[in-house]
């Protein structure tokens, strides 16, 4: 099984995640796009683990998942807290740091 298609797929998913972060305004959907990016890199890690013949990549992917879990927990808690005070989950609300 060729390695290249998996990597290309990973790249495509990553790019779509990036564009999603840029384009969506809802904070939760942006977060979901970030998760998509993380998943894409996980795929690449697992693929390279198979290409190199050892399990280091899988271990790395495992750790990525754990950290992603922690990150989602705290991130969503923050979004919820902000939503409580602002009544809106739009990313564009935090725009005070401007000229």
């Amino acid at each position: 099984m060729d390695v290249t298609p998996f990597i290309v797929l990973s790249a495509i998913l990553f790019t779509i995640g990036c564009v999603g972060v840029l384009t969506r305004r809802n904070a939760i959907v942006v977060f979901m796009c970030v998760e998509l990016m993380l998943n894409a890199s996980n795929l690449a890690l697992v693929t390279f683990s198979r290409a190199n013949g050892n399990l280091e990549g899988q271990i790395a992917a495992f750790f990525v998942m754990v950290v992603a879990a922690a990150e989602v927990v705290v991130g969503l808690a923050i979004i919820m807290t902000i939503f409580r005070t602002r009544r809106s989950a739009s990313v564009d609300d935090a725009s005070l740091l401007k000229y």
């Binding site: 099984m1 060729d2 390695v3 290249t4 990597i7 290309v8 790249a11 495509i12 990553f14 790019t15 779509i16 990036c18 564009v19 840029l22 683990s49 198979r50 290409a51 190199n52 013949g53 050892n54 399990l55």
Partner: peptide
């Protein structure tokens, strides 16, 4: 920008010859 990024990434990756995977 997304297109540029994506294309660059994909093309860059596609150029690399990874060789046969060693398998697990």
């Amino acid at each position: 920008v997304g297109l540029v990024f994506g294309l660059t990434l994909v093309l860059g990756v596609a150029q690399v010859s990874f060789g046969a995977p060693l398998g697990l």
